[in-house]
């Protein structure tokens, strides 16, 4: 089995697209259960949510406040999973509740090399 990265992108910029605290709680619960589904299959490797603050660096010493400089969809979090194939990993990602949100997206990538600690 290989490891795959599931990247979750959200619109953190458009004011109207932001959920209310109640909605947020509902989303978090769905998210938690989605990760739980994966972990119950012993396929969860790791993952983190990301803060909405960040910096974007570019060649020539350019640093801007990020993470959402040019695209609406910002990286909101990621998890790593074990999967039989890209299709298998994609099937897991398909249940990600972030996909209920208009304009959001999820990207699946196989981890091809590991930086040894």
């Amino acid at each position: 089995m290989d490891e795959y990265l599931i990247l979750m992108r959200l619109d953190l910029l458009t004011k109207e697209a932001q959920p209310s605290p109640e909605q947020m709680q509902g989303f978090m619960e769905m998210y938690n259960n989605w990760v739980g589904d994966i972990a119950a299959r012993n396929r969860f490797v790791g993952g983190k949510g990301l803060s909405t603050e960040g910096k974007v660096l570019k060649p020539g010493g350019i640093v801007t406040d990020g993470p959402f400089v040019e695209i609406k969809e910002s990286l909101a979090g990621f998890i790593m999973v074990k999967a039989e194939s890209l299709e298998d990993a994609t099937a897991m990602a398909a249940a990600c509740p972030i996909l209920y949100g208009e304009g959001n997206s999820v990207e699946v990538r196989m981890i091809s090399s590991v930086h040894e600690k």
Partner: peptide, 12 residues
């Protein structure tokens, strides 16, 4: 359910 979700992530 919530607690099991977390438990399985750290100790399957």
């Amino acid at each position: 359910l919530h607690l099991y979700n977390h438990l399985l992530q750290i100790n399957y």
